[in-house]
């Protein structure tokens, strides 16, 4: 088990380096002069501009810039945003909100997806199954931003059941609607995945053997069918945390959530390279770590993996 985790950890290192390099390269390749963005519309004096260049290592070759950046990352120094705020400070205010939102969305997709998927998988071909499948297809087909606006308009404005925007009010009720919108597509995938896994396991030989032992249907379903179907589902849900945090860019925009997505979007619009790279790098790290955890979880859930 320890070796399994160790090997995964080692494999994550090149992925981390590669992904951050890729991001850095992408931002570096962005057209336009970052210093021009820094100085605003009026422009800076040449002396100020060159001082800024050396402050942000812009006068160094690309590779040196990247290595300096990684060095900063490893020492916890994310650099300074163009506004003068430390990027780590920006991260510290934006991330907790997004994490809260993403975890809430994760809980929603897990609970609703698994329950509906289990029922649909057990009664494959039935009315519930059909309905749920059509709805899940619709949820996948309608883009999140459409869903977001419609939900905001109908539930928030017309019915006034939930607050329309979040802003500084990051309570559970305020986050509920954005979380549902954020979870939408993933929920549909969880549902379909659970349904397939349940339907497959329900006809597995060991389930028949369990029934032949004299177990009640309820016990067969919970202890054997559901438990085994959860292996791929939990793997999916785990890996989804990073995806949800990345996907928050649209949802947070619609509901004015002051999280990573919003901050990131503003930084992109302003062409703030260092801030963009740092925010996305954290997302990538979260993604890599959750994937690592999922691998461990997978090994815990499936004893066959542990000994490979």
């Amino acid at each position: 088990m320890g070796w399994y985790v160790g090997r995964r950890l080692l494999q994550a290192i090149p992925v981390f380096l590669g992904a951050t390099f890729l991001l850095y390269l992408m931002v570096f390749l962005m057209p336009g002069d970052p210093v021009a963005g820094l100085c605003g519309d009026r422009g800076c004096a040449p002396a100020v501009a060159s001082a800024l260049r050396s402050q942000y290592h812009l006068d160094q070759p690309f590779l040196v810039q990247y290595l300096l950046y990684v060095k900063g990352l490893l020492t916890g120094d994310f650099g300074t945003a163009y506004s003068g705020r430390a990027i780590s400070e920006v991260i510290a205010t934006a991330y907790p909100v997004t994490v809260k939102l993403a975890l809430l969305a994760l809980a929603i997709e897990a609970v609703f997806g698994i329950v509906a998927g289990l029922i649909a998988g057990l009664r494959r071909g039935g009315v519930f199954d059909g309905t749920v499948l059509v709805v899940s297809l619709l949820v996948i087909a309608v883009p999140t931003f459409v869903m977001g606006f419609v939900a905001q308009f109908v539930i928030g404005v017309k019915l006034a059941w939930l607050p329309t925007t979040v802003g500084g009010n990051q309570t559970f009720t305020a986050l509920l609607m954005p979380a549902f919108v954020l979870a939408g597509v993933s929920l549909a995938y969880v549902l379909r995945l659970t349904r397939t896994a349940v339907a497959e396991n329900a006809s597995a030989d060991y389930v028949r053997t369990a029934t032949a032992k004299g177990l009640t249907r309820r016990r067969v379903v919970v202890v054997h069918i559901l438990r085994n179907s959860l292996i791929p589902v939990i793997t999916f849900i785990g890996a989804d945390l990073g995806v949800l945090m990345g996907g928050a860019i649209v949802t947070e925009g619609i509901f004015a959530v002051p999280g990573v997505g919003n901050t990131l979007y503003q930084a992109i619009l302003k062409g703030e390279g260092p801030t963009v790279v740092s925010l996305v790098t954290i997302l990538v790290i979260v993604f890599i770590i959750t994937n690592l955890l999922v691998d461990v979880l997978y090994a815990l859930l499936d004893p066959r993996i542990r000994y490979v």
């Binding site: 597995a204 060991y206 032949a212 859930l301």
Partner: peptide, 21 residues
């Protein structure tokens, strides 16, 4: 009630008839 206590089953393929987890 009948299964297990009155009628037992030894299935065909030992590889797939035990729950792997």
């Amino acid at each position: 009630r009948l299964r297990g206590s009155q009628i037992g089953l030894v299935p065909q393929d030992p590889m797939s008839n035990l729950n792997p987890v």
